[in-house]
């Protein structure tokens, strides 16, 4: 965009440079003022006192170490990440099947897959989780996984479809012409390339899935948020803000780590020679838009994006 801006504007003259400098100073002051106001608001409520000790030294016979172990091990690993690790492989398999089904020669199969995609992209993950608990009488972890799997399968299948659509047409034609069946062409020529170019979008979808596990909190599944709540109920109301901010920090760092991985892969992908480029030498164009779209869609509460 900075390139575009350079093109859109003339090179700033002395007047514009002065104006930009003034604006910079003014808005730096505004942002600093905002931060100062927040700190002051917190200060005047005694928030900056020793209540943060709960994260360092602990309280009520528990050490700070115990608190963090609860948050990171019981909450993050045994709650949130466990659901993610169970759901992701299931999503991968189901999405693969759904993607193949959407290109199937039988119209009925194709339409069923099309219907599944649109229906389950449009139903809240939370509703699916409640359905698991109340209607199917599942216990909590399977219900959480059910909600995550059904929704993300539909989204990942869409991502893969966009990836296949972004490939040059010659790839499929070449596969068929060397005598591969349509299914083999799909599985051995198109899908591997589609997965490669869509890898950043697929990883972004993991962020969405990870955030959506927090919907489990609402149906009573014990994950990071539930552990946080138990902790601040135990330590008393003064500890509420520190603990909530601590768990927010955990979510944000884990998600940023995953997102960073996606950016890194995107850079590698650009240089990869394993993906066919369109004949005009251009980049495969669809992935970026599709990736953003998918991330956006995931936005749900995670997805309910919660």
């Amino acid at each position: 965009m900075s390139d575009t801006q350079q093109v859109l504007y003339d090179v700033p003259g002395p007047k514009a440079i002065r104006r930009d400098k003034t604006l910079n100073v003014v808005f730096t002051l505004v942002v600093l003022g905002l931060i100062a106001w927040l700190v002051q608001a917190a200060w005047s409520r005694g928030v900056l006192d020793d209540r943060w000790q709960v994260l360092l030294a602990g309280d009520k016979g528990f050490s700070g170490w115990d608190v963090w172990r609860r948050l990171l091990w019981d909450g993050l690993v045994l709650g949130t990440l466990k659901a993610v690790v169970i759901a992701v492989p299931i999503v991968a398999v189901c999405a693969l099947v759904l993607t193949v089904a959407r290109q199937a020669p039988m119209r009925l199969v194709r339409w069923t897959a099309y219907g599944f995609t649109h229906v389950f992209r449009g139903i809240p993950v939370l509703l699916l989780m409640y359905f698991g608990v109340i209607a199917l009488d599942l216990s909590l972890l399977p219900s959480v996984v059910l909600g995550l799997v059904v929704y993300n399968t539909a989204v990942v299948a869409e991502i893969l479809r966009a990836g296949i659509a972004a490939l040059p047409k010659g790839q499929k034609e070449a596969g068929l012409s060397i005598g591969l069946s349509p299914l083999a062409t799909m599985l051995r020529i198109q899908l591997p390339q589609a997965v490669r170019i869509m890898l950043p979008a697929l990883i972004s979808q993991i962020v969405v899935l990870l955030k959506d596990t927090s919907l489990g909190f609402i149906i009573g599944y014990v994950e990071l948020l539930a552990v946080t709540k138990n902790l601040y109920n135990f330590f008393g109301s003064a500890s509420t803000a520190p603990l909530i901010l601590a768990s927010a920090a955990i979510y944000i760092s884990v998600n940023m780590l995953v997102a960073r991985l996606a950016t890194w892969l995107e850079g590698r992908m650009r240089r990869s020679s394993h993906v066919a480029r369109p004949a005009d030498g251009g980049d495969v164009a669809a992935p970026e838009t599709a990736a953003r779209a998918a991330y956006g869609a995931g936005g749900g509460a995670g997805a309910a994006g919660a």
Partner: peptide, 19 residues
């Protein structure tokens, strides 16, 4: 990068005492 549910919990439980 924050789950929406956490945003709600923040508004319910942390915002009053913090801000």
């Amino acid at each position: 990068n924050t789950p929406l549910t956490l945003l709600f919990v923040f508004l319910v439980a942390a915002a009053p005492s913090l801000l």
